[in-house]
Amino acid sequence: MTARIETPAQALADPTCRQALVELLFQLADDDLVLGHRDSEWVGLAPHIEEDVAFASIAQDEVGHAAAYYGLLVDLGEAESADALAYSRPPDAWRCALLLERPNGPGHYLENPQFDWGYTIARHYLYDLFEMVRLEALVESAYLPLAQLAAKVRREERYHLLHMETWVKRLARHSSVSRARLQAGLEKAWVDLYGLFSLGPEGPAMAALGLLPGGRDRLWQTWRERAQTLFAEAGLPWPGDPSPVMLDGRAGRHSADLEALLGPLTEVYRLDPTARW
């Protein structure tokens, strides 16, 4: 039985706890912000107008969740504002998994984008299922403010998961073309999949302190079981367990894709970080 931590002050009192909690919150916030940013690049260009509208809501939810997690970091004294955390950290301070920083496809969002809907859906589904499993663990977190936030976030995530499952099944079953596109997307996402389950150097402490009950093993086991169920339902072959990745985003090691993402993300903010926008 792990001790309940009800306030930021209690978390700060124990340096081990503080460090594990801060790392965990950066993982949660950065995953959501980076994917929400990628999603937002699609706006106005999605394959179907109704889907464009629906997908833009998902992008908003992800950014909104990130803002809420950054808020918990502000409460822990990590910065003065959520914006300072989102807009002024160098790439090696980011804790997102590599899967989420990858572009939607070749090209830039303003110039000749050749975004890939097969990859977009594949990546989003794999992440949304992971996020749901992680949130289910977090609602039992020893850190009460996080447990309370996770319960709220989980409600919105139910829609994301339903949305992505509907697409996966549809693409898998419709035609050989759509199935091939989805499978290519899954293969590409699978390369980065291992890193999604990394909790970084603080992972064992997150589990031991009950900040993320069950730790990596619980996430992986639950995730795999549910993903396999959907793959079977959609008639998709199981690609096998993912191989370890070279770069662990949770340890602050990223691809050039993150730097390319942070450029536009912070472009206006950097004009004058002290100004009010």
Binding site: A54, Y159, L162, H163, T166, R170
Partner: peptide, 14 residues
Amino acid sequence: LASSPDMALILAKE
């Protein structure tokens, strides 16, 4: 515009 009821439902909400 949608292809099926399940797709129409997820699009209708947003």
